[in-house]
Amino acid sequence: MWSRIGIGLLMIIAALWTRNASLLAKPIGEDVKIIAHRGIHHTYSREGLTNQTCTATRIFPPEHDFIENTIPSFEASFAAGADVIELDIHPTTDGHFVVFHDWTLDCRTDGEGVTRRASLDYIKTLDAGYGYTADGGETFPLRGKGVGMIPSLTEVFEAFPDGQFLINFKSNDLEEGAAFAALMVAHPEWRERLWGVYGAPGPIEETLKALPGLRYFHKPALKACAKSYLLTGWTANVPADCRNRTLALPISHARLAWGWPRAFEARMTAAGSDIILMGEYGSGDPGTPGIDDPETLARVPDSFGGYIWTNRVEIIGPALKGEDAVWAGGRQ
């Protein structure tokens, strides 16, 4: 009897292995694509990082003069190999959207106050590089180099007729989503350049009302997919929570996905979902770690044909082409 039970268990294990064996799955056959987070920008120490940390005051010693979320940064990112650029937006008091990361202007610029409580005209007077320092305030290497460079979303779309962009909503304001959707509806020529949206659920849901089928992701949706797939993915079926979605998966946790890498990617592709492979999440880090160095890039499966998220497109773009890292466009 025990031998029959043992044989039965082995058969079950073999069946599970066969269903989830990546070696038996065919590669998607597409090249990996790059999402450049904030464009080419200055990275910083993530040690002790919180949502209130002014990251401009902890940058590493500058190797270039590009400033995040600006037109020159985006141009250099596409030149370095970006397929999609992630950018951050805030509504302004005079009916525009400004491309800027922080909730307030105080950290990075010579302005002050909550970003969405300022007008575009005021923001256009500011120096986008004012607050950056790598030595605790001894020097400010970008000061004076970003005056008037914080763009509106309209300027970005007009500057890159062939670019694709992932929009990050910085609040959970439903009106923000409605205003963004209205802008996109008013400019149908921009629709194909809008790769997707992410952030808080509120504005995303408002945007989807006007733009159904748009790629999106937010934490509740990602958690729902992860939970459902962890419980049922061993059957090789894709749960509803993971269908027609954009899935952001940390490379540190990817091996936990049933069928990773080939079988998992094949299932999600067949279910209409895109995969974004993120960097390795550290304990307590509220940011968005990326695949930012050759060592982490080497952990991306050769067969992977989805998207990788990076903070260092100037390194990762050339590396994917087998080229040496360069500062795309050089120093400004």
Score class of each variant (00 low, 15 high):
residue 280 E to H: 09
residue 280 E to F: 08
residue 280 E to M: 04
residue 280 E to V: 05
residue 280 E to N: 09
residue 280 E to T: 08
residue 281 Y to V: 12
residue 281 Y to R: 14
residue 282 G to H: 11
residue 283 S to W: 07
residue 283 S to T: 12
residue 283 S to F: 10
residue 284 G to M: 13
residue 284 G to R: 09
residue 285 D to T: 15
residue 285 D to Y: 06
residue 285 D to F: 06
residue 285 D to L: 05
residue 285 D to E: 05
residue 286 P to I: 06
residue 286 P to A: 03
residue 286 P to W: 07
residue 286 P to K: 02
residue 287 G to L: 01
residue 287 G to N: 02
residue 287 G to D: 00
residue 288 T to Q: 04
residue 288 T to L: 13
residue 288 T to P: 03
residue 289 P to H: 14
residue 289 P to S: 14
residue 290 G to V: 01
residue 290 G to L: 03
residue 290 G to M: 02
residue 290 G to R: 00
residue 290 G to C: 02
residue 291 I to Y: 00
residue 291 I to E: 00
residue 291 I to W: 02
residue 292 D to K: 08
residue 292 D to H: 11
residue 292 D to Q: 05
residue 292 D to G: 04
residue 292 D to T: 06
residue 292 D to M: 14
residue 293 D to K: 14
residue 293 D to L: 08
residue 293 D to I: 12
residue 293 D to H: 09
residue 294 P to W: 10
residue 294 P to K: 14
residue 294 P to A: 12
residue 294 P to Y: 13
residue 295 E to D: 13
residue 295 E to M: 06
residue 295 E to P: 08
residue 295 E to Y: 15
residue 297 L to Y: 12
residue 297 L to P: 01
residue 298 A to I: 09
residue 298 A to F: 07
residue 298 A to N: 14
residue 298 A to V: 10
residue 298 A to W: 06
residue 299 R to V: 10
residue 299 R to D: 04
residue 300 V to L: 03
residue 300 V to G: 02
residue 300 V to E: 01
residue 300 V to I: 13
residue 300 V to D: 01
residue 300 V to F: 13
residue 301 P to L: 11
residue 302 D to P: 07
residue 302 D to M: 08
residue 302 D to V: 14
residue 302 D to Q: 09
residue 302 D to I: 09
residue 303 S to K: 04
residue 303 S to A: 12
residue 303 S to E: 11
residue 303 S to M: 13
residue 303 S to W: 13
residue 303 S to Q: 10
residue 303 S to N: 08
residue 304 F to L: 14
residue 304 F to H: 08
residue 304 F to P: 00
residue 305 G to L: 08
residue 305 G to A: 03
residue 305 G to P: 01
residue 306 G to I: 06
residue 306 G to A: 12
residue 306 G to Y: 09
residue 306 G to Q: 04
residue 306 G to F: 08
residue 307 Y to R: 01
residue 307 Y to K: 01
residue 308 I to L: 15
residue 308 I to E: 02
residue 308 I to H: 03
residue 308 I to V: 13
residue 309 W to P: 02
residue 309 W to L: 10
residue 309 W to I: 05
residue 309 W to F: 11
residue 309 W to N: 02
residue 310 T to R: 00
residue 310 T to H: 03
residue 310 T to Q: 00
residue 311 N to V: 05
residue 311 N to Q: 11
residue 311 N to P: 04
residue 311 N to Y: 07
residue 312 R to H: 07
residue 312 R to Y: 06
residue 312 R to D: 00
residue 313 V to A: 15
residue 313 V to I: 15
residue 313 V to Q: 06
residue 314 E to M: 04
residue 314 E to V: 03
residue 314 E to N: 11
residue 314 E to K: 00
residue 314 E to A: 05
residue 315 I to D: 01
residue 315 I to H: 08
residue 315 I to L: 11
residue 315 I to S: 01
residue 315 I to R: 12
residue 315 I to E: 02
residue 315 I to C: 03
residue 316 I to C: 02
residue 316 I to G: 01
residue 316 I to D: 00
residue 317 G to P: 02
residue 317 G to E: 03
residue 317 G to A: 10
residue 317 G to S: 11
residue 318 P to E: 04
residue 318 P to V: 07
residue 318 P to N: 15
residue 318 P to Y: 15
residue 318 P to H: 11
residue 318 P to C: 02
residue 319 A to T: 09
residue 319 A to P: 07
residue 319 A to R: 14
residue 320 L to V: 12
residue 320 L to R: 12
residue 320 L to M: 15
residue 320 L to E: 11
residue 320 L to C: 09
